[in-house]
Design a protein around this nucleic acid. Structure first.
Length: 235
DNA sequence: TCATTAAATTGTT
DNA sequence: AACAATTTAATGA
């Protein structure tokens, strides 16, 4: 396993192209955006790095600019339970930021990633001043609620093709993860971790989904051909 | 820029 | 879990 260094040390100002990967900036008025951009920081997370840990007081509202993170928690037995992957364009932790509490999940990089953070005070300032920001956050929370309900269904499925299909549909969610686009950069091993299946089984499932023309398998990633089909397909 | 080599990822058993 | 085949990334001339 990799070292568990935090990314908080090597923070830097976001580059222009990194700002373009932050979806909610477009919802802000110029003055609001100016302040947000001033406060935004980005950091590189190596594979295995923790972006935040359960129990630590919240400092930032985080989002993925590039790469892939996973959200998980540890149960009483010390077993790790993975909830979801977070691909580019995804922002998380609004609930905790709203209440200024401690992180309720571990967020760990599955691969080398670029993570952006907005200080929690600025997050609150935007909530107090920006209607566009409020809309974004509300929309985000609503969409995530739908995902968690879907996730409960997914957990009860024993058909691996279905599990993979539904999980992919979640990762390709254009509202929550607008940075993903047509191609999701994820290896079959990473997907196996997220879905909770062996890589072989994931490989089989992907081949089957490709045969149904729902996706196309590419080296180091997957191209979605039929998102609605991934959501609704039956086997 | 190109050729060679190493590393990562995939497909299969 | 192991292996070969394929693709990408890194290196250096």
């Amino acid at each position: 396993m990799n070292s568990e260094t935090s990314l908080h040390q090597r923070r830097r100002l976001p580059r222009r192209e990194e700002l373009e990967g932050i979806p909610w900036l477009a919802a802000l008025q110029p003055i609001e955006r100016e302040r947000a951009v001033e406060e935004l920081r980005v950091g590189d997370a190596q594979s295995g790095d923790f972006v935040c840990r359960i129990g630590r007081p919240i400092t930032y509202w985080f989002g993925v600019v590039e790469g892939l993170l996973k959200m998980s928690s540890d149960n009483a037995d010390g077993q790790t339970m993975t909830f979801t992957g977070v691909p580019p364009g995804g922002w998380f932790g609004e609930g905790t930021a709203l209440k200024r509490e401690v992180y309720r999940y571990n967020i760990q990089a599955l691969r080398k990633s670029v993570v952006a953070g907005l200080p929690v005070d600025t997050f609150h300032w935007l909530l107090d001043h920006s209607i566009g920001f409020n809309r974004f956050v509300m929309n985000q929370i609503n969409e995530r609620l739908g995902q968690f309900i879907a996730a409960r269904e997914i957990d009860r499925m024993n058909n691996p093709e279905l599990r993979v299909a539904r999980n992919l549909a979640s990762l390709f969610n254009p509202v929550l993860y607008p940075g993903v686009g047509e191609v999701l950069r994820i290896t079959q091993q990473e997907l196996a971790y997220l879905v909770g299946l062996s890589r072989q089984r994931v490989n089989e499932a992907l081949t089957a989904l490709a045969a149904r023309r729902l996706i196309r398998v590419e080296y180091g990633g997957l191209r979605v051909l039929d998102l609605a089909g991934l959501r609704s397909s039956e086997f």
